[in-house]
């Protein structure tokens, strides 16, 4: 009974969904599969290159310590940037969600996350102007301070960290703000009525309730930072060699695509592992 109608409905669902998901398949999922395949080749299978299946690209990662060391360096960078962003961003989100009231809150919140939606490359570039020797930071400090200082943070790890924190800070503020905003003010009043002081309330009420949002923000920062290459290149100079820049090199300088694919895939594995571990938290943060 009504098989016709059920079929019509199925056709309609298919018609509405398939363009978008076909596109995602062609542009995301097939490429990821192709990359997996490529990572097991000895050379690019284009033109008359001689190629065969091999695992040597993965062996390269484990035999020489270079790649593993760089991956670890990228992970450490990710941890540092995430930690700084959380420590800086959470209090800011708290102030926005619980201290500031009314229309100004909306405007300030928009102001905080607006840079996030503007061009990241340009924002990194703007730090280059500020941080370079004889740059704005140095000139500014020397104008204020009674003694001469020599500030040249450009091409250093701190410069990379500053640039990345600047890039991703709005993420953690956004997710923490949404989580904090969802906390009923009555809960805080209730805790106070039972004699809890501010620190106790923070530790026992606010932090546990906003933790999913905070962790979601942390994961959303950590993952792209581990895969960053443009920021270290511009702000890190010679010390800016990271796992991401090595992958970039394989594709645009060295043209060893199979090795690049293998390195990308190892990075993807790390990312997926992190997302899998964090997924219960991310799910809770969604709701």
């Amino acid at each position: 009974m009504s098989a016709n109608l059920a079929n019509q409905e199925r056709l309609r669902i298919f018609g509405l969904l398939s363009p978008a998901y076909l596109w995602l398949t062609v542009a995301i999922f097939l490429p990821l599969s192709a990359m997996l395949y490529f990572s097991f080749l000895s050379d690019v299978p284009f033109g008359d290159a001689d190629w065969h299946h091999t695992t040597k690209n993965y062996q390269a990662f484990f035999q020489t310590k270079t790649y593993a060391t760089l991956l670890w360096k990228s992970i450490r960078l990710g941890l540092t940037v995430t930690a700084v962003a959380v420590l800086v961003g959470f209090p800011c989100a708290y102030v926005l969600a619980k201290t500031i009231k009314g229309r100004s809150r909306e405007a300030l919140f928009l102001l905080v996350i607006l840079p996030f939606w503007s061009n990241s490359l340009v924002r990194i570039f703007s730090w280059a102007i500020v941080l370079r020797g004889n740059g704005v930071l140095e000139l500014g400090l020397n104008a204020i301070l009674p003694f001469q200082v020599d500030v040249n943070l450009m091409f250093s790890t701190p410069a990379v960290v500053i640039g990345l924190v600047h890039s991703y800070l709005p993420y953690v503020i956004l997710t923490s703000y949404l989580a904090l905003q969802a906390i009923d003010d009555n809960l805080i009043d209730a805790a106070r009525s039972m004699g809890a002081n501010k620190l106790t309330i923070l530790w026992r009420v606010i932090l546990p309730l906003s933790l999913p949002g905070l962790l979601a923000g942390a994961v959303l920062i950590f993952v792209p930072v581990v895969g960053s290459f443009m920021e270290p290149r511009i702000l890190g100079g010679r010390v800016g060699t990271y796992y991401g820049t090595v992958i970039e090199d394989q594709f645009v300088a060295v043209f060893n695509w199979p090795l690049g694919a293998a390195l990308s895939f190892i990075l993807l594995a790390v990312v997926l592992l992190i997302l899998a571990i964090a997924s219960p938290v991310l799910k809770r943060a969604q709701t």
């Binding site: 192709a34 990359m35 690049g260 990075l267």
Partner: peptide, 13 residues
């Protein structure tokens, strides 16, 4: 969620 470096290189391939 996947870093653009990975999606970008995969698309290139």
């Amino acid at each position: 969620a996947i870093p653009w470096l990975i999606t970008g290189t995969a698309m290139l391939i």
